[in-house]
């Protein structure tokens, strides 16, 4: 079966929502079981006492990238049917910076706040409520930000084409960089005073 199996019509799109729930469950389970329901564990990355975010996040990115490239190589997935986020340079950077501030303030991102709320953390629930307000404010104030929102449009480029190398080579370099980062993170974690949480 050549994936993505829903976009290419192998199974009906009515199954789409069922798979959405199942995949969401896997996502939520992986996040919660890795400890992402605790904001103090997440924020440890930025103070050097717990690098769980870096480890989980980059391992996941590598596994998914490698997996997609292998599936593509074996002809099991049609890369051109995958949803590749369009790149809007300016809004991606500005939005990322804004999110970074929110991240440092609250210690959650949207997915992890949901996990925290699911296991009864009120701060997670409050964060999620705050997001509704933020999204509402953005939507209402959209005309003010419209130019920023559409500026820096680049189409949907892949990062390897920026460096002029193949996706496979880029992923290989990414793996080496990630391994280096994991070793560095473990080293820092040993040096930094443990924080009880």
């Amino acid at each position: 079966m050549i994936g993505p199996i829903i976009s290419s019509g192998i199974i009906s799109s009515a199954w789409d929502n069922l798979f959405a729930i199942l995949l969401g469950m896997g996502f939520g389970f992986a996040l919660e079981a890795s400890g992402f329901s605790s904001s103090r564990k997440i924020i440890g990355t930025f103070f050097g006492y717990d690098f769980v975010v870096v480890k989980v996040f980059f391992t996941a990115a590598i596994v998914a990238s490698l997996g997609l490239l292998y599936l593509n190589y074996l002809g099991l997935i049609d890369y051109s049917l995958l949803y590749i986020q369009p790149t809007f340079l300016t809004s991606a950077i500005v939005g990322g910076v804004v999110m970074g501030i929110g991240f440092a303030m609250a210690g959650f991102c949207p997915g992890t706040s949901l996990c925290a709320a699911a296991v009864g953390r009120i701060d997670g629930l409050v964060f999620f409520g705050g997001m509704f307000i933020g999204v509402f404010l953005f939507s209402e104030a959209f005309p003010l930000f419209e130019n920023l929102y559409y500026s820096g449009s680049q189409g949907s480029p892949m990062i390897n084409s920026v460096f002029g190398i193949s996706p496979e080579l880029f992923t290989f370099i990414l793996v080496l960089a990630a391994v280096g980062m994991f070793v560095g993170a473990s080293w820092v974690q040993k040096k930094v005073k443990k924080v009880e949480y």
């Binding site: 996502f27 929110g102 609250a106 959650f108 991102c109 949207p110 706040s113 997001m131 480029p157």
Partner: peptide
């Protein structure tokens, strides 16, 4: 933090999972 994050996620067309993690998996710039 939630308010600010929500705002930023709209500007960047996605959050840490949708834009960053999923984007990285398909090598999106």
């Amino acid at each position: 933090g939630g308010l600010i994050f929500g705002f930023g996620s709209q500007l960047a067309r996605g959050c840490t999972s949708g834009a960053a993690l999923s984007g990285m998996a398909v090598l999106s710039l």
